[in-house]
Every structure is written in structure tokens, then in C-alpha cells.
Design a binder for these strands. Structure first.
Lengths: 242, 242
DNA sequence: TTATATAGGTATGTAGGACATATTTCAATG
DNA sequence: CATTGAAATATGTCCTACATACCTATATAA
């Protein structure tokens, strides 16, 4: 797409006699790539001031327009911030900002959706050690509160909501904010896939291990037991894998 | 940053008396958001032709420049493709394209790097069930070949390379392409963190369980055994968590 | 002197026009 | 009928201009 360019300058690229250059990337693609390399190679750190748009344009021998298209991308990723007169500064990017915009079941193929769903299963099993490392008493109480609410629920929609809340709480308990945000973004996809698994009757299969059992193991068991229990809890989903 | 806008039009936003509008997002931010909503709400599917730049600009009452900045972002994410006269088409986005550009240890905070490293540990433990579901004889052979090569290596750099190769092979064996690409992108970060863990002497701690043992369990054991073994294999890394 | 108010400068944000380029469509020509 | 060539068109790039917000510094008032 826009990667694997050689590290030649823009000037060298255009002064290539009359031959068509090998790269088929647009100017914006090339400038974006070059800027990212530049920021890193120059050792810029978050907070550092960056050159002005016009200076970049002149240095790369492209229009300010092209530079702005490239900068717009980096701005979207949270890599740079701009203020009116102060210019631009490098900032710590949001690693998940790109993902956030793309996670829609209408846009992704069944294959990728399937992969992301498997991703979830992998995370919830593998997360076990982090949970036992960082669980707090208040977390357990919160989980128990959720389970208590589950008892009195008839509506299937509410049941799904509480299920999501239970698992979301586990992610939060992992103490890994990136992990938590990742899961949060995936929730809409999960609901979509669960609907598919459910089939026309709308019934969702339930695993052999309940939320209560998971809590109990979290309190008195160990990571290995929790992994096995979680797998049984997610068994209906695993049944669809092949 | 650029999210959580209400769904009001541009015209409504500017004709707000003299009051400062709540939204502080640029036109490009708003157009990007609006276009993504539009594509999804219109039920566009990958391959479908999209409106022309000028039409979008007129419809949203902004300049073509602004539209192009927004489209440039979506193009970067692989969400749209363009050809010279044919116009633009929606395409299946690359969920990891945004991530790919940001995973540089020089850009991310120690905290996020730590989270991503934990992510890896979680994945390798949780991946176990997928491995046993999809492992093939040829994969095992390949793993054994890697281990054989490890025996004859003195150079620490080569040792790290073969270690990465071993674990990369496991990800490939999971049959989950998204998972595999994710891990591939994280490798540079891992090397960076491993260097930190190693300390000034440059020695990297080795887990109690070797690659050979992992292979043996993969052949004759079960997912639970593999999880425990993998955790012991990664023990030096877990030792840094708290 | 200190604080406030005002004026000017500056970098980004937006608009609009122009032309190049590539590719499709279609007509002309052998 | 096949090939060539011209016209049409949407994107890619460039340029200029101005609005906007914000920083700086100077001037004015307490």
C-alpha cells in the first residue's frame, strides 16, 4: 500500500530521467512515511516542537497541500498535535485510535471478524495470571454485585449487557489499560457474532461454568484453575472453532 | 480528540449566534467522522463506488481540500481505494494499519510499552487451545528444525533471532492471521524491552522450560499442560510484572 | 512600578482556482 | 474488424488568499 519504499529523497525520485518511478505511492503517502521516519531519526520526543508546514513543504519540494494531507493522518493517529500559532508538537500517539475507526461488522470480512473473536477467547484465557497478580477485594465485590443482578433478569438484552459488564470488569481488573480499551472496542463485534452463533431461534448457549464459579476460583483458586474454568465458561464459543 | 460529536450539520454548528460551539474539532475531523458514518449507514460494502470528491465537498459545504484531508486518512487505513478516472471505491480496511505506524519504542510511553508486552504474555498463554486445534505435523517438524539450529549458536543476536522465529512459528500455527500480524508488529518492541530487562551485563534470563519441552508437549500433551509450560518458559518476563 | 488593554505578528485552518495525469469511452481510420 | 487517436473525467498536485486563534510586545492607566 504505502510501505516498503527505499530511503531515497523526493528530489532523487523525481529526477529519474523520463523513466516511470517504481513507487506507485502518492506524494501524501511518501511524505507521511518520510515524516514518521524523520521524527524518529531526529530523536523527537513527545512535547517537542516540529517544523512548520511551509518549511516541511519546501524541504521536501512538495506543496503545502500534500504536507497537510500527510499531517492530517498523523494527527488522526494522535501522533502530532497542533495549536494555532504555537505550531505543531509531537505527542504520544494513541496506539488504538486507528483500530477504533475500523471495528465495524459492516466493513470487515467474516474471516477478520472470526479472527478478532478468537482474539477475545485467547485474551480471556491468557489474562488469568494478570488477574491473580492484581485482583483487589473491591473488584471481587463488584463482580458479586453483577452476578446478584443477573439472577433477577428475564430480558435477554439485559442478560447480555450484564454478561458484557462482568467480562469488562475482568479486563479492568487486569490492570492493563490497553487491554481494557481493546476489549471495549471489540464488544460491538462480539454482540454481532453472538447473534450469528445464536441462530434464528435467538437462544444463546451457556457454558457449563457460571460467573459465580469464576468468582469463587478468583477468590480461592489459582491461575491454572481459572484458565480451565474460563475455557469451560466460553465452551459454546469454542465449539464453533475449527 | 476528534470523536464524540453530536450528529449536527456544519451549517447548524456555525450559525450558533455568537456562542462558542462546543465542538473543537477541525472540519477534516468532522468530515472524516461523517463519511465513516455515511458509508456504514448507506450500507456500502467493499467494492461499492463512492461519491466524487467534489460532490462530497458540495454536499457538506466544505472545500475540496478539507474533504481530501479526511479521505487521505481513510485511505491510509485502507478503508477506501482510488483510481484515476474510475473514482473511489470502499474497500475492506486493514484493522492493523493504524497500529503498524505507531509501534515504535521511541514514540510510546513506558507504560504503554509495558501494557503491550503484557499483551504478548497473555496471547502466548491463551493461544494454547488454538494451537492444539490447528497444529499440523509439518509445523512440528519446522519447530524442531529451529531448535536444532539453536544448539549450534553462540552469538547472542542469533539466539534472539531464533527465539523470535520459534515464537513467530507458534503464532502462525494458531491459524489466526490477525494474531500473527499483531505479533509480528510487536517484535521490535519486545527486543527493546528485553534489552531493558537484560540490564547492563546483557545477559538474558532463560526460563525453566525449553523450546524442546514445549514441542514435546505440543506433540503428546494437552492445552493445559502447554499453558503451564509456556508460563514457565516466559517466567523471567513474568518476574518483572507487579 | 505593576497591571491591564491594545495592537501587530505568526502558524495553522479553510477556500477556491488551475492544471497535470491517468484511464475510460468512443469515434475515426486503415 | 482491429488499431489508433481524441475527448471526457476524476483524482493528484500546486498556488494564492484570507480567516482564525494565539503569542508577543508595546502602550496606557492605576
Amino acid at each position: 500500500m504505502s510501505s516498503n519504499h527505499r530511503s531515497d529523497t523526493f528530489a532523487e525520485t523525481v529526477s529519474n530521467l523520463g523513466l516511470t518511478p517504481i513507487v506507485n505511492a502518492s506524494m501524501a503517502d511518501q511524505v507521511e512515511e518520510k515524516l514518521r521516519q524523520y521524527f524518529i531519526q531526529q530523536g523527537f520526543k513527545p512535547g517537542d516542537a516540529l517544523p512548520k508546514e511551509i518549511e516541511i513543504a519546501q524541504a521536501l519540494n512538495v506543496s503545502r497541500n500534500v504536507v497537510r494531507e500527510a499531517l492530517s493522518r498523523l494527527r488522526m493517529l494522535g501522533m502530532i498535535e497542533t495549536r494555532k500559532r504555537r505550531g505543531m508538537i509531537l505527542s504520544e500517539p494513541d496506539v488504538l485510535s486507528g483500530l477504533e475507526r475500523l471495528l465495524d461488522p459492516n466493513l470487515l470480512s467474516r474471516e477478520v471478524l472470526q479472527h478478532l473473536f478468537e482474539f477475545r477467547l485467547v485474551l480471556e484465557i491468557g489474562m488469568s495470571d494478570l488477574l491473580f497478580l492484581r485482583k483487589k477485594e473491591s473488584d471481587i465485590v463488584q463482580l458479586k454485585t453483577i452476578v446478584e443482578r443477573e439472577v433477577n433478569v428475564q430480558d435477554n438484552k439485559q442478560r447480555v449487557e450484564l454478561d458484557v459488564l462482568f467480562h469488562s470488569t475482568l479486563y479492568r481488573m487486569s490492570g492493563n489499560e490497553t487491554l481494557r480499551r481493546f476489549q471495549k472496542m471489540l464488544i460491538p463485534l462480539f454482540n454481532y457474532i453472538v447473534d450469528i452463533e445464536a441462530g434464528p431461534d435467538g437462544k444463546t448457549a451457556v457454558g457449563a461454568v457460571s460467573h459465580s464459579v469464576l468468582i469463587h476460583i478468583l477468590e480461592q483458586g489459582n491461575p491454572q484453575e481459572f484458565q480451565e474454568a474460563m475455557k469451560k465458561h466460553l465452551e459454546p464459543h469454542y465449539a464453533y472453532l475449527r
